[in-house]
Design a protein around this nucleic acid. Structure first.
Lengths: 109, 109
DNA sequence: TTTATATATCCATTAATTAGATATAATGTT
DNA sequence: AACATTATATCTAATTAATGGATATATAAA
């Protein structure tokens, strides 16, 4: 009955954060990270991590249905965050806030 | 002239966050993490990571000068976050906010 | 002496990251 | 038809980080 493991590796966390407000396709996620000043991650790290996030239920994917004129190149697969994924980001933020604010019950002195 | 590497591993990030508002000694950091619902990290991970954070200038340490009556056991070494450490936490938060909000310049369609 | 607190290191295993290469598919351009 | 671009996807090897367990030392109280 314990909660599923919502912990994220650093790359998974930034990928998931890139999907927090918008659905995006793979290379768009890399662009969002690069343009936001993050350390660049390669698509060799991106795609396996997207698979892992989807397997854990933190994101969902769907093939793009844009008309062919909208862009050149191959089909895009769009990813969107799930409620569980949103929760994983919240849990992380709450942990960082919690550890900072925590005070021991019996303060030495 | 580029900025020093302020990236943090997951354990380093939560340790640094535990020092954001209060100076703490080693085992107090572990207690803050455990009581805040974080995955428990062991002192075999704590102390090497404190060394690394101090070496990078993100934290400083000083031996406690409490009177002997204040607590039983050995001397405590207290750690406090530096301005650089605070900045590292901010940079991380700004990255997560930035990648979520980023919009591509030329939107396909 | 024993117990509790506290810092610190070492080892072996496992997990994650990284760079580089390759493959396939779809589309527009020459 | 050939080529370039965009895009998803996998594989390997090397490096780095995390993990559990053990050990060591120091301090002080019971």
């Amino acid at each position: 009955m314990s909660e599923p493991d919502l912990r994220l590796t650093p790359n998974q966390e930034v990928i998931l954060a890139a999907l927090r407000l918008h659905r995006r396709y793979g290379l768009e996620i890399l662009a969002a990270i690069e343009k936001s000043g993050g350390k660049q991650i390669g698509f060799n790290s991106l795609y396996p991590n997207l698979k892992k996030l989807e397997k854990k239920g933190l994101i969902q994917s769907e093939w793009g249905d844009e008309p062919p004129e909208s862009h050149s190149g191959a089909r895009r697969k769009y990813y969107r965050i799930t409620a569980i994924g949103t929760r994983a980001l919240e849990v992380k933020q709450q942990l960082l806030a919690g550890v900072a604010a925590w005070i021991p019950e019996t303060e030495g002195v």
